[in-house]
Each structure stands twice: as structure tokens, then as C-alpha cells.
């Protein structure tokens, strides 16, 4: 159905972590969106959604960065981010940030309503399913908190992963529990974060899966970093990389093979 419909004009919100740490996720997102019949623009004036400032209580900086995002992403049909956290920031928290600013609110509300997390956008809006994508692996999917609870992303990634040939999903116990990342939380309360990520890892490993995928790079860096520290072998990928047929990319924290 995507082939016949008018192409969707999508602006990619790359996210700061993908930009800096794992560009392959951005390219996977582009590949998927194009395959789903979208035309892609990457607005230059983007850096971050402002969440680190927002969650640290620095509302002024958060607003300034949000204003920059709002300007940079004017005029597109959709704004899509390979992250539930950043998409959730724009969709749910920008309106909160500007709720006392009636003039901004019109535009903020409009931006919020056309902002999506990548996988749910592909599934719900584009009706996209991967075709001829193969990855021989057993995979467990981690529900990131923002994807799950703010963006209601739960069944969509599982449905799309189900279309990947050779891939078997193994669900982990307590899969809706937080991994302990929490942005600056993992730096400020590292011991608590350690306990949380260890609980998460225990459940992930018990699933018996070889590969871990999730839709948010923050969680993935946290979990992968801890897995590596513990000497575990589980391969960690962003779900977009798996769906785009880029599952052979070196996992997070792995050297080039």
C-alpha cells in the first residue's frame, strides 16, 4: 500500500546519541522509511531534543533547545525519531514545557501530533513489513520505558521482527522493567543503576537469546556496556538495524570484525 500512496514527507530526528555514537541506526532508519514509501529530510539545525536539561530541572535551557527543534522541523508531514524517548519528549513534554505560552502552544501541539517513534510509525502509519530481510538469530526485545509507556510501542516491534526470516523472538521475564539508564540517573546514582541493569541482564540472559534489540540507544548503551563489563557475549543492536537488514553490523561495544 505504501507503493501507491503519495510519498510521506518525513523529517528524521536523528537524536544526539545516534548522531554521535551509532550513525548506522540513522541510516537504518532512512532505509526503512524509504522502503516504506517516505521521502526523507534531515534538518541541519538539530542537535538534541533537550531532555537532559528538562530532566535535570533546567527548564530554561530545555525551552531554548525545544524552540530550536520546533523551528527546524516546521513544514513536514511527519517527524520520526529512532527513539521512543526523544519522540516522547517532543510529543508529550514539549506541550508541558510551553503550556503557559499560548502563542507557542499552537505550533507545539501541531508538532507533537505529527511526531512518531520510528517502529510504531512504520507499523501503524506506513503499514510497513520487512520483506526479504534475514537474520539467523534468537532475539529478545527490551521494552524501553518511554517507548512502552509514553509512545505505546509494544506489539509493533514484535510484529515487524516477526517478518524477519530466520529470527526467533525469545521474550525475557519482567520485560517491562526499566534497565536503569534514566539519562543522567545512571551517572548520578550509578550503584542503583548497576543493580537495576544487573537485574535486567539476568532476565535477558535467562531468555537464552543471542541478540538483544531495543528501540532506544540510551538503554542499549547502558545494557551493552554492562554486558561487556561482565564479559557476556550477547550481541546488542538497535531494532532498526535488525529490521533494515543491517544485523551484521558490529553490535554495541564490539570492535570491527
Amino acid at each position: 500500500m505504501s507503493a501507491t500512496a503519495k510519498p510521506k514527507n518525513v523529517a528524521l530526528f536523528v537524536t544526539c546519541l545516534v548522531d554521535l555514537n551509532r550513525p548506522s541506526v540513522g541510516f537504518a532508519a532512512v532505509k526503512l522509511l524509504e522502503a516504506a514509501g517516505c521521502t526523507i529530510v534531515v534538518p541541519k539545525a538539530q542537535t538534541c531534543c533537550g531532555q537532559p536539561a528538562y530532566n535535570s530541572g533546567d527548564k530554561k535551557s530545555a525551552k531554548a533547545i525545544a524552540t530550536q527543534v520546533i523551528r527546524a522541523f516546521r513544514g513536514f508531514d511527519y517527524v520520526v525519531a529512532p527513539s521512543g524517548s526523544c519522540a516522547g519528549m517532543i510529543r508529550h513534554h514539549y506541550p508541558e514545557l510551553f503550556k503557559d505560552d499560548a502563542t507557542m502552544m499552537v505550533e507545539v501541539g501541531e508538532l507533537a501530533s505529527r511526531t512518531y517513534e520510528l517502529v510504531s510509525f512504520l507499523h501503524d502509519i506506513c503499514g510497513y513489513r520487512p520483506e526479504n530481510v534475514r537474520l539467523e538469530t534468537t532475539l529478545t526485545y527490551h521494552d524501553s520505558c518511554s517507548s512502552l509507556r509514553e509512545m505505546k510501542v509494544k506489539d509493533q516491534p514484535r510484529a515487524l521482527l516477526g517478518s524477519v526470516d530466520g529470527l526467533e523472538i525469545r521474550e525475557a521475564e519482567d520485560r517491562e522493567a526499566c534497565c536503569g539508564f534514566g539519562g543522567t540517573f545512571c551517572l548520578k546514582y550509578s550503584e542503583i543503576s548497576e543493580s537495576m541493569v544487573d537485574t535486567k541482564i539476568t532476565n535477558l540472559l535467562a531468555s537464552g537469546a543471542e541478540t538483544l534489540a531495543a528501540g532506544d540507544l540510551g538503554c542499549l548503551m547502558n545494557i551493552a556496556g554492562r554486558l561487556k563489563r561482565r564479559g557476556e557475549k550477547m550481541k546488542v543492536l538497535h531494532v532498526a538495524e535488525v529490521l533494515a537488514g543491517m544485523g551484521d553490523t558490529a553490535g554495541l561495544g564490539e570492535g570491527e570484525n
Binding site: 536523528v14 545516534v18 548522531d19 554521535l20 555514537n21 551509532r22 550513525p23 548506522s24 540513522g26 541510516f27 545512571c186 551517572l187 550509578s190 550503584e191 543503576s193 548497576e194 541493569v197 542499549l220 548503551m221 547502558n222 551493552a224 556496556g225 554492562r226 561487556k228 563489563r229 546488542v236 554495541l252 561495544g253
Partner: peptide
């Protein structure tokens, strides 16, 4: 970060 985890290194050039 480092007291608990390794840091997965960037792939190279930014997106």
C-alpha cells in the same frame, strides 16, 4: 558511567 559499565565506542564519523 565507568564504575559500572564499559562505554560502547562511537562508530566514527557522526551521522
Amino acid at each position: 558511567w565507568s564504575s559500572v559499565r564499559d562505554f560502547p565506542a562511537p562508530q566514527g564519523a557522526t551521522f
